[in-house]
Computed example of a mutant assay.
Amino acid sequence: METGKTTRKAYSPIKVYCLPSEREAIAENARAAGKSLSNFLLNVGQGYRVQGITDYERVRELARINGDLGRLGGLLKLWLTDDVRTAAFGAETIHRLLERIEATQAEMAEVMKSIVRPRAS
């Protein structure tokens, strides 16, 4: 082996002819896996199962929504325990709280759908 760093660029490439639509499909799969086109094709060509990556922005959004649900649930629990601090809460306030919990759950479901079925780029 040589004293310098050996890279793949020192060797001949494999050329693959494809239609523009095929190239775009391969490029989209590479983006979904978080890999460069070259690295994606190298991994697939060697028989590796390429795993997709999760959109970290969406995961952060789910964590925020989960925190909101926790706080809303805590308020509801406090009311149900007949705590002195919630004595002034009426049924209307509790109904609004429950509606907000349902809306937050719906928001969370939409974010989960966007992860499972990624939006078009």
Score class of each variant (00 low, 15 high):
26 I>T: 03
80 L>R: 13
38 S>L: 02
53 I>S: 08
10 A>T: 14
92 E>K: 12
45 G>Y: 06
19 L>F: 09
85 R>Y: 08
107 E>G: 05
111 V>E: 01
23 R>T: 06
103 A>P: 06
51 Q>L: 10
61 E>S: 08
70 G>W: 04
20 P>G: 01
109 A>T: 06
50 V>E: 01
8 R>L: 15
49 R>V: 14
101 I>C: 00
31 R>T: 11
102 E>Q: 06
22 E>W: 10
106 A>V: 08
92 E>I: 03
90 G>H: 04
76 L>E: 05
29 N>L: 15
97 L>Q: 00
43 N>R: 13
12 S>V: 13
83 D>G: 06
7 T>K: 12
61 E>W: 03
40 F>E: 04
62 L>F: 03
21 S>N: 11
50 V>N: 01
27 A>M: 12
26 I>L: 08
71 R>M: 09
75 L>P: 06
73 G>Q: 00
34 G>E: 00
110 E>Q: 15
8 R>Y: 14
119 R>G: 13
81 T>N: 08
72 L>T: 05
84 V>H: 10
93 T>A: 15
31 R>V: 09
6 T>C: 11
51 Q>N: 14
96 R>N: 11
16 V>L: 09
91 A>H: 10
81 T>K: 03
61 E>K: 12
11 Y>W: 02
18 C>A: 12
8 R>E: 15
34 G>L: 01
2 E>K: 11
76 L>Y: 05
59 V>D: 01
63 A>I: 09
65 I>V: 07
56 Y>M: 10
18 C>R: 06
75 L>N: 14
94 I>Y: 01
27 A>H: 03
51 Q>I: 08
78 L>I: 03
71 R>C: 05
66 N>S: 01
51 Q>V: 13
12 S>G: 14
116 V>N: 10
100 R>V: 04
114 S>R: 07
112 M>V: 07
119 R>T: 08
117 R>P: 13
17 Y>D: 10
47 G>C: 00
62 L>Y: 07
81 T>G: 00
8 R>T: 12
47 G>F: 03
64 R>A: 10
3 T>C: 12
86 T>I: 00
20 P>E: 02
19 L>P: 05
105 Q>T: 07
94 I>V: 02
82 D>E: 10
111 V>N: 02
68 D>V: 08
99 E>D: 15
83 D>Q: 05
26 I>F: 09
66 N>R: 08
4 G>Y: 14
14 I>K: 07
107 E>Q: 06
65 I>E: 02
9 K>E: 15
41 L>G: 03
38 S>I: 04
28 E>F: 12
41 L>T: 02
6 T>I: 07
94 I>M: 04
65 I>N: 11
40 F>I: 01
9 K>T: 15
16 V>W: 01
60 R>D: 13
109 A>D: 14
32 A>D: 15
101 I>Q: 00
18 C>M: 10
100 R>W: 05
54 T>D: 13
27 A>I: 09
79 W>A: 11
48 Y>P: 03
13 P>E: 01
108 M>C: 09
100 R>M: 07
109 A>N: 01
19 L>H: 11
5 K>T: 13
113 K>S: 10
40 F>M: 02
82 D>T: 06
43 N>K: 13
95 H>G: 05
84 V>E: 14
104 T>V: 05
55 D>W: 05
73 G>H: 00
